[in-house]
């Protein structure tokens, strides 16, 4: 059994929400199309004083609490996001300072559309496995952007998930990893642009499905496993439809996908999307259960992980707020006007 893996995890979801109906009413669109077709009912919205850094810090604190270690023992802190608040100045330094990991800590900010979070996890895991650090934090978090009136506005949301990787005392071992990547122009944002561009339907088959299925099939082949060997599967979730379709094509029944399928109520938290799906699974997982996780980032690529849940999971699940209650409880709904103000979409005098 591998002795390197996750020793603590944390999720943070802002309290604010906007319903698909509120967005559709503003733009004269049919909300039912988004709710039925893409299965997007509502999404999280960051508060005026929240950004990728604040969300990541809260998720990291919960992860440290579950890991039972002090921030000073974190040897590397990597944050994946496509909404790092500064163009030049690392998210990681502020995060590391806030959790008390400085100065003996390596930090880096990752960007790879929605895959940046699992990149951070992969590299922290690799450093622990190589024996370079004792513990490290891999974080995926975003306050993602969608242009007003665009289909992305119904999904682009906010949240963060953090994972402490270490050796021994695991809550989930990393049994296998895999990466699948090509140069695919499905979604991008140029420097100084506020909102991303996407290639419409090209984001589906040649982008999301090719890489998600490629990584899932690749990692299962590498591990000598099939869909039947897993208790849960977590995919990147840009909308409700894509992960369910990917799961079906890979032979996973709906019930193995649903626990980590948060997007109808959360939206697409970009770099936080599959990591938050994983925290929702870890919240309820039992020792011995196996999890397949496959992220996807436009551009395009997917990272795959296979985890086996360890006995210690039962001791840590209650130590910090679980994912699903943060999603389902204490919500504050915004109308489109307040949402536009919160997201800085109103043109104002300086």
């Amino acid at each position: 059994m591998p002795d390197v893996g996750i020793v603590g995890y944390g999720a943070y979801i802002p309290r604010y929400r906007i319903k698909a109906e509120s967005i559709a009413a503003t733009w004269g669109a049919d909300a039912e199309n988004y709710k039925r077709g893409l299965q997007l009912r509502e999404k999280s919205v960051p508060a005026l004083d929240q950004d990728t850094i604040t969300l990541s810090v809260e998720a990291a604190k919960y992860a440290l609490k579950r890991a039972g270690i002090d921030g000073s023992r974190i040897g590397a802190a990597y944050v994946g996001s496509e909404s790092h608040p500064y163009a030049v100045k690392p998210t990681g330094t502020i995060l590391a300072e806030a959790i008390g990991a400085t100065p003996e800590c390596h930090t880096a900010d990752y960007e790879f559309a929605c895959k940046a979070g699992t990149e951070a996890m992969y590299n922290v895991y690799s450093q622990v496995k190589a024996g370079l650090i004792e513990y490290g934090l891999g974080i995926g978090g975003d306050t993602s952007q969608g242009a007003p009136g665009d289909a992305l506005e119904y999904s682009a949301s906010a949240g963060a998930a953090a994972f402490v990787f270490g050796r021994g005392n695991l809550i989930a071992s990393v049994d296998e990893t895999y990466a699948f990547m090509t140069d695919t122009p499905d979604f991008w944002r140029r420097e100084h642009e506020h909102y991303p561009q996407h290639a419409g339907r090209f984001t589906g088959e040649p982008a999301y499905f090719k890489h998600t299925l490629g990584a899932a099939n690749g990692i299962m082949k590498k591990a000598g496993m099939t869909a039947d060997d897993f208790d849960y599967v977590v995919f990147h979730q840009p909308n409700g439809k894509f992960p369910m379709a990917a799961g079906k094509r890979l032979g996973f029944p709906r019930e193995k996908i649903e626990t980590g399928w948060l997007v109808p109520w959360l939206g697409n938290t970009y770099s936080g999307a599959s990591p938050l799906g994983l925290t929702a699974v870890l919240d309820v997982a039992r020792p011995g259960e196996t999890i397949l996780m496959v992220s996807f980032g436009s551009g395009a690529g997917s990272d795959g992980f296979i985890f086996t849940v360890q006995d210690r999971i039962l001791e840590v699940q209650e130590l910090a707020p679980r994912t699903r209650p943060q999603l389902d409880e204490n919500k504050i709904y915004l109308d489109y006007g307040r949402y536009a103000k919160f997201r800085g979409k109103i043109l104002r005098n300086k």
Partner: peptide, 9 residues
């Protein structure tokens, strides 16, 4: 909670 206190333009 950790929040952004000020944004200088």
């Amino acid at each position: 909670e950790f929040r952004r206190m000020r944004t200088e333009g």
